[in-house]
Amino acid sequence: MPGRPERPRSAELDGTPVGRRVVLGLLGLGAVGVVTGSTVQQGLSRALAPVQMRDPTGLSQYIPIGNTFRYYSVAGAIDSVDAASYSLAVSGLVATPTTYTLADLRSLPQAAITEDFHCVTGWRVEDVPWTGVRLAHLLDLASPSPEAVAIRFRSFDGVYTENMTLEQARDDVLVALTMYGEPVTHYHGGPVRIYAAPMYGYKSTKWLSEIELTDRTIPGYWEDRGYPLDGIIGE
């Protein structure tokens, strides 16, 4: 009768358990990949970097060796801001609150940092060159009041915030204006973003609009969602 459950002693059940071996094999390969992947990736990205830098089609960025930037945006669509209308406020617990245009920032002393960019989730981009104004220099110009201990960064995406202590801010942290020798693009958080060399990417606020000095550390967007307050690479 159609529809009755079959009663097998099916020959199909006598074979070797290849399916199980495939599953276990993939799990083993995956585990080896997790442990050795960082080293393997370093080799692959060294080998492929010249290709990716010169690839006119841009297709090579889709080779998933994990050494290219991924674009994180926590807001909806973000309107780009052009060089002429951009402004950055330094506010809060400072003696001289200031608003900088992009031209103002460009006229200040520029510093350069070339470092690996690390995302907390694991991807990394090697040797990214940045230039911009040292955050420490902007803080000096603003003269923080004695009760100021931390910074709250804001983004013109309207959502993102970040925190950093004043002490951390005086380390290798740039108010970055260029990346790879070009003005920071909108996709990378331009025209002005933070680049905090000692820290994971989420500490480097994109589409920077305000640097507010505060009397305590106010957890930022990802810190509210469980990421560490300090976000030092390797910790």
């Binding site: 990949g33 997790v34 992947g37 998933p64 690390h118 989730t121 390797g234």
Partner: peptide, 18 residues
């Protein structure tokens, strides 16, 4: 992100992508 060290997370990202 607190489960394993950074280099393993980098490896995990690579394996996850492929």
């Amino acid at each position: 992100t607190g489960l394993v060290r950074l280099s393993w997370r980098t490896g995990a990202t690579l394996v996850h992508d492929w």
